[in-house]
Amino acid sequence: MIKIILCDDHAVVRMGLKMLLSNHREMEVVGEASEGNEGIQLAQELKPDVVVMDLSMPHGKDGLSATSELKKLLPNVQILILTMHDDEEYLFRAIQAGASGCILKSAPHDELLGAIKMVAKGDAYLHPSATKRLMEEYIDSAKQGNHDTFSLLSDREREVLTLIAKGYANKEIAEKLTISVKTVETHKGNLMEKLQMKTRPELVAFALKKGLLGYGM
């Protein structure tokens, strides 16, 4: 029996999922939550095998933050992110947060059931289009040699990269690291040259993939 907690801010969505899952003898919905903090509390009490976690919950803790915190508290609980966003950035962030899988809300019922069974066994699940994009990303990175560029950065350059990706301006970075703005600009120029990048969005995407933004992946 796979014990499941549903965490979604829409009661109608939770009701539909519960009806679907209750039709399968090997699955049991043991709890429901409308936001991340409630989901974390329920998981600590009920010790489920799988938490089906909505990515976007505007009230309370969102799915990514809840996933990251829950994996620290209960590392053996598997989390399947449920999202309407077929977007590479959300995919990387979900994986970095510690999710075992990611599935679209528009996916067929059979695909959702299969995804739950996979993550419950400890396997990873990505919807097909996401798998294709990750493969393309890896192949492109391998061709360009970008998979090794992070190792070229110094510790200070990695600190600067992390703060840039988090949205800090050069002056703020200088104050945080107790260095001059000119030194920050030098580090920024050096790391962009090593990474062969020219824009902030490129740096943010790279930092996400390297797990530098606090989601642990």
Results as ranks from 00 to 15, higher is better:
residue 93 R to G: 03
residue 94 A to E: 04
residue 94 A to P: 07
residue 95 I to V: 10
residue 95 I to H: 00
residue 95 I to N: 00
residue 95 I to G: 01
residue 95 I to T: 02
residue 96 Q to A: 14
residue 96 Q to R: 14
residue 99 A to G: 08
residue 99 A to E: 03
residue 99 A to V: 11
residue 100 S to D: 11
residue 101 G to T: 09
residue 101 G to L: 13
residue 101 G to D: 10
residue 102 C to L: 13
residue 102 C to D: 08
residue 103 I to E: 07
residue 104 L to S: 05
residue 104 L to E: 02
residue 105 K to W: 12
residue 106 S to Y: 08
residue 106 S to L: 12
residue 107 A to D: 07
residue 107 A to T: 07
residue 107 A to H: 06
residue 107 A to R: 05
residue 108 P to Q: 10
residue 108 P to G: 01
residue 108 P to M: 04
residue 108 P to S: 05
residue 109 H to F: 12
residue 110 D to R: 15
residue 110 D to A: 15
residue 110 D to T: 15
residue 111 E to G: 04
residue 111 E to P: 04
residue 112 L to D: 04
residue 112 L to T: 03
residue 112 L to G: 08
residue 112 L to V: 10
residue 114 G to V: 02
residue 114 G to N: 14
residue 114 G to I: 03
residue 115 A to R: 04
residue 115 A to V: 03
residue 115 A to Y: 02
residue 115 A to S: 07
residue 115 A to M: 11
residue 116 I to F: 10
residue 117 K to I: 02
residue 117 K to V: 04
residue 118 M to P: 01
residue 118 M to A: 13
residue 118 M to F: 02
residue 118 M to H: 09
residue 119 V to W: 11
residue 119 V to A: 06
residue 120 A to H: 08
residue 120 A to F: 05
residue 121 K to S: 09
residue 121 K to L: 08
residue 121 K to E: 07
residue 121 K to T: 03
residue 122 G to M: 07
residue 122 G to F: 12
residue 122 G to V: 06
residue 123 D to H: 11
residue 123 D to C: 01
residue 123 D to T: 01
residue 123 D to I: 00
residue 124 A to I: 09
residue 124 A to N: 10
residue 124 A to D: 05
residue 124 A to H: 14
residue 125 Y to M: 06
residue 126 L to R: 01
residue 127 H to Q: 06
residue 127 H to N: 02
residue 128 P to C: 04
residue 128 P to W: 10
residue 129 S to E: 05
residue 130 A to S: 13
residue 130 A to F: 15
residue 130 A to D: 00
residue 130 A to N: 06
residue 131 T to V: 13
residue 131 T to H: 08
residue 131 T to P: 00
residue 132 K to N: 02
residue 132 K to A: 10
residue 133 R to H: 10
residue 133 R to K: 14
residue 133 R to V: 01
residue 133 R to M: 12
residue 134 L to S: 08
residue 134 L to I: 13
residue 137 E to L: 00
residue 137 E to Q: 13
residue 137 E to P: 00
residue 137 E to H: 11
residue 138 Y to N: 06
residue 138 Y to F: 13
residue 139 I to G: 01
residue 139 I to P: 02
residue 139 I to F: 07
residue 140 D to Q: 14
residue 140 D to T: 11
residue 142 A to P: 00
residue 143 K to N: 11
residue 144 Q to S: 15
residue 144 Q to W: 03
residue 144 Q to I: 04
residue 144 Q to G: 12
residue 145 G to S: 12
residue 145 G to V: 03
residue 146 N to K: 15
residue 147 H to C: 11
residue 147 H to K: 12
residue 148 D to H: 15
residue 148 D to C: 11
residue 149 T to L: 14
residue 151 S to V: 12
residue 151 S to W: 09
residue 153 L to V: 09
residue 153 L to K: 06
residue 153 L to E: 06
residue 153 L to F: 11
residue 154 S to L: 03
residue 155 D to C: 00
residue 156 R to E: 15
residue 157 E to M: 12
residue 157 E to W: 08
residue 158 R to E: 08
residue 158 R to F: 04
residue 159 E to F: 05
residue 159 E to V: 06
residue 159 E to W: 03
residue 160 V to Y: 06
residue 160 V to A: 08
residue 161 L to F: 12
residue 161 L to D: 00
residue 161 L to V: 09
residue 162 T to F: 04
residue 163 L to M: 14
residue 164 I to W: 08
residue 165 A to R: 09
residue 165 A to I: 06
residue 166 K to H: 10
residue 166 K to Q: 14
